[in-house]
């Protein structure tokens, strides 16, 4: 057991250390999230009722786009410098360190979004009671985005125009997460309760945790071949 955890812990701690040393990139992703959210009032007008209505959707779409923005970094550096080959040659199962990499990536790029989102929600005058639901929906939903996105990132590794291709591949897959994530907040605000949405997001997280790393590992093997 501890032997299998060795590579997992090694990859997780290294990627977190790298995220810390390259924290400018992380901050750019976060700044992008904030700026996109702040653009919407300029586009649709500052009418408070309208802003309140669209807030969950706006926050979720912005979170989704900033996730997308950072996805291509997930394997690109390791692919370029040969680390990926070494990782594929570790005796332990590939999915282990794939999960470690995705976890580190989410902690570095997804978690900050979850933390910042309530503050942005206040800019849209979202009822304070709904902030908890917003945090919860993002905390459950953004890991799904990272897991699904990792498959796309692995498939488009090293391709010309990979970034645009990645967006085309994963955005349709993100739609259910968007629906249930933003829907959770909407449902809470409309008084029907967010429980069903959050449960579905939780189920989606478990399912993608079980399946996406497998697809991602297979895609990585193909990418280095």
């Amino acid at each position: 057991m501890s032997r299998a955890l060795g590579p997992f812990a090694a990859v997780l701690s290294r990627d977190l250390l790298l995220a810390w040393r390259g924290r400018a990139d992380v901050l750019v992703t976060l700044a992008f999230f904030v700026v996109v959210v702040c653009l919407f009032p300029f586009g649709v007008g500052a009418e408070p009722n309208l802003l309140r209505t669209i807030a969950p959707g706006v926050l979720w779409v912005a979170a989704l786009l900033s996730t997308l923005l950072s996805l291509h970094r997930l394997f690109a550096q390791d692919h370029a410098d040969g680390t990926l080959e070494q990782l594929l040659l570790t005796p332990e199962p590939t999915v282990l360190w794939v999960v470690a990499k995705i976890s580190a990536h989410w902690i570095a790029t997804g978690l900050p979004l979850v933390v910042v989102a309530p503050g942005l929600a206040l800019l849209f005058d979202v009822e304070q009671g709904a902030l908890g639901v917003l945090i919860l929906s993002l905390a459950l939903g953004t890991p799904i985005l990272a897991l699904l996105g990792a498959v796309g990132a692995a498939l488009t590794l090293g391709l010309r125009g990979g970034g645009m291709l990645l967006a085309l591949l994963v955005l349709p897959l993100f739609v259910p997460v968007l629906i249930f994530g933003a829907g959770a907040v909407d449902a809470y605000l409309s008084g029907s309760g967010a429980q069903a949405h959050l449960l579905l997001l939780g189920g989606g997280l478990l399912a993608s945790l079980a399946l996406a790393p497998l697809a991602c590992a297979a895609a990585l093997r193909i990418a280095v071949e």
Binding site: L148, L173, P176, I179, G204, A219, A223
Partner: peptide
């Protein structure tokens, strides 16, 4: 590589098609 990568995304898509359909319907 194109063959296998395409196959993976086709399968990932196929798993997601029902999920997408039902989520959109619910929405």
């Amino acid at each position: 590589r194109a063959d296998k990568a395409g196959a993976i995304i086709a399968l990932v898509g196929a798993v997601n098609v029902p999920i997408i359909y039902f989520s959109v319907k619910w929405w």
